[in-house]
Design a protein around this nucleic acid. Structure first.
Lengths: 340, 340
DNA sequence: TTGTATGCGTTATCAT
DNA sequence: ATGATAACGCATACAA
């Protein structure tokens, strides 16, 4: 590789001058600077990020913590979409991204690494955390460390985060359902996370506002992205004496699990039962019938997370911790029947 | 951060000894070595990858080139699944992965970077290339550079690659269709890529073997992952005087685009027309009716790509260029009617 | 305006 | 068995 020294020799100047010329800054003769830059370009010079990092302590590398080795984090469209968005936004700011994970086996860092250690090992300037167990001590260690962090869909006190507005989401869904004449509304939730709690609270609150009495046996705990689980919950709901007229699912995948179950019983959607999803995966408009669902703005979430983190990295003094809410949008499909 | 020097001082030994102890190797007194390692651990020492890289010229970082800023590469399940697999396998070998991309704007590297330059900038040990325009001069520059590369689903002469066996895939599909009694088989392809060419060739060959005459107007060019395109092609096929009895789609997403069109015409699947997808996205079993499709083994593709690249990186002399084929599996759903 | 020199954290060579 | 030291490529304080 061609390095600064090579350019210096070729130009007959010192390496300091080359460095200065390359940075544009400093008080170098504009002509020499220009000349040096041309030669550098001609020689195909590419800076060495590691060497630079060693001096400046800035890697221009953002860590992304996206679930542990359960290996499937990237396969959830909501998260892969956020990741993609983070990647694009970061790159536009000159940052690359590195996945933070546990390292096992014979790695150069000496075996197992905690998330924090991994982040240190790679010298990331900051890390965006999403889709993990936020109670994990390792996650907490990372968040409380000296490394700037931004969390997605979870709040740590005094730290910045970007959160999809689940309260709004469920409110809009429930309001829409009630407007359609539904009163017997069932809700299959995901695991007990803060996201879930927000949704459930919003569910109760909105029902309350609309004068709907929530039946406890209409609220079932399921799991995010596990169609089988929602299938089971669906079966239970459909076995009740007084069936709900509509079922809200924790996500669009789970909804499809429910569909299987519903059709198994010979019921048809939305005539016999209405269903609503969450997330707004791309397929939601493609699948028949089109899914009524709440579309989370994953692109915006990724953009905001990247921007906020970069702000913290580049202006640590003037940047304050904040939680950035991202609004979604109700997508009306054909799985909810108007019954009024 | 605690560094080697700190450990040395604490232990009252030289930094050289600490380095040796940490590497296990060399002829250090086992007791001192053990002692040093304990202290290091106690002090929470984490090596600095960049400093190490500077000396060793090994980053333990693998570049992944996954489509340019068209921004949606990660959202195709086939590719996000491969990526996830690459990530896991790489991490198990002590490697991290870095996305290779164009960098725009005010980055530290000085604006726009070619893929090769980016790879150099980040000192990646090698790069895995997938889902790009393989004719792109920048891609070619990268492949022909000194950086080890492994391509996915594309072959460069003298270079290693991992390819999903599209010939087998289409052969199995066609054979299955013929076994089901179909003779009027239509095929909507993707864009003209080597993958597509393999599939088309396999289509003609297998039909030939089975004594099926391929009608030219049954073979239509569409686009991968663009349901609208396949919808148009579907409409054209269904307008023919002699309609096909089955339509093969370039991928499962596209198939869904076809479904929309088919249902629009009041036809039902598979009674009026049979359809087959490709890829085997997770939803293929969830969607009703279950999709008959060819499941590509994306996990294995990722694993093999990572392994091969690491082999090249670690044993450049003894590793030869090879193209590793990955077999898939026909998944029989309910979208193909038996008509014999 | 330009050049010299030092150090970032690490590895590795060569002495001791 | 252990230590002193140079070097990796770069940025920068300071000298000229």
């Amino acid at each position: 590789m061609v390095k600064i020294k090579d350019i210096a020799e070729r130009c007959g100047v010192s390496i300091a001058s080359v460095s200065k010329a390359l940075h544009g800054t400093s008080d170098l003769n504009p002509n020499t600077a220009e000349y040096i830059r041309n030669v550098a370009k001609e020689m195909g010079y590419v800076p060495n990020a590691s060497a630079r990092l060693l001096k400046t302590n800035r890697s221009y590398n953002i860590g992304v913590l996206f679930v542990d080795s359960t290996s499937s984090g990237l396969e959830h469209e909501y998260f892969s979409s956020i990741l993609n968005s983070i990647k694009n936004e970061s790159e536009n700011h000159g940052y690359d991204i590195t996945f933070i994970s546990h390292h096992f086996g014979n790695n150069q860092a000496g075996g197992h690494l905690t998330f924090y250690e991994h982040a240190k090992y790679r010298n990331v300037d900051g890390v965006i955390i999403a889709s993990v167990d936020f109670k994990d001590p390792e996650v907490i260690q990372l968040v409380e460390s000296d490394i700037p962090t931004v969390t997605i869909d979870y709040l740590f006190d005094g730290k910045s985060s970007v959160v999809s507005d689940n309260i709004q989401g469920v409110r809009e869904i429930v309001n829409y359902l009630v407007d359609c004449g539904h009163k017997r509304i069932a809700f299959i939730t995901g695991e007990d996370t803060s996201v879930t709690r927000n949704r459930v609270t919003s569910f109760y609150r909105t029902c309350d506002e609309r004068g709907i009495k929530v039946r406890e046996d209409y609220v079932k705990r399921g799991k995010y992205h596990v169609p089988k689980e929602s299938g089971i919950a669906t079966r239970e709901l459909l076995s009740l004496d007084e069936k709900p007229t509509v079922i809200m699912y924790p996500d669009d995948y789970s909804l499809l699990g429910g569909v299987t179950e519903i059709e198994k019983r010979g019921m048809s959607i939305p005539d016999d039962i209405s269903i609503v999803g969450y997330d707004g995966i791309k397929l939601s408009r493609l699948v028949r019938p089109e899914i009524t669902t709440f579309v989370q703005n994953s692109t915006e979430i990724g953009i905001q997370a990247a921007r906020k983190l970069i702000e913290i990295i580049e202006h640590p003094k003037s940047s304050y911790a904040e939680s950035i809410p991202i609004q979604g949008k109700l997508q009306i499909g054909k799985t909810v029947k108007k019954i009024n």
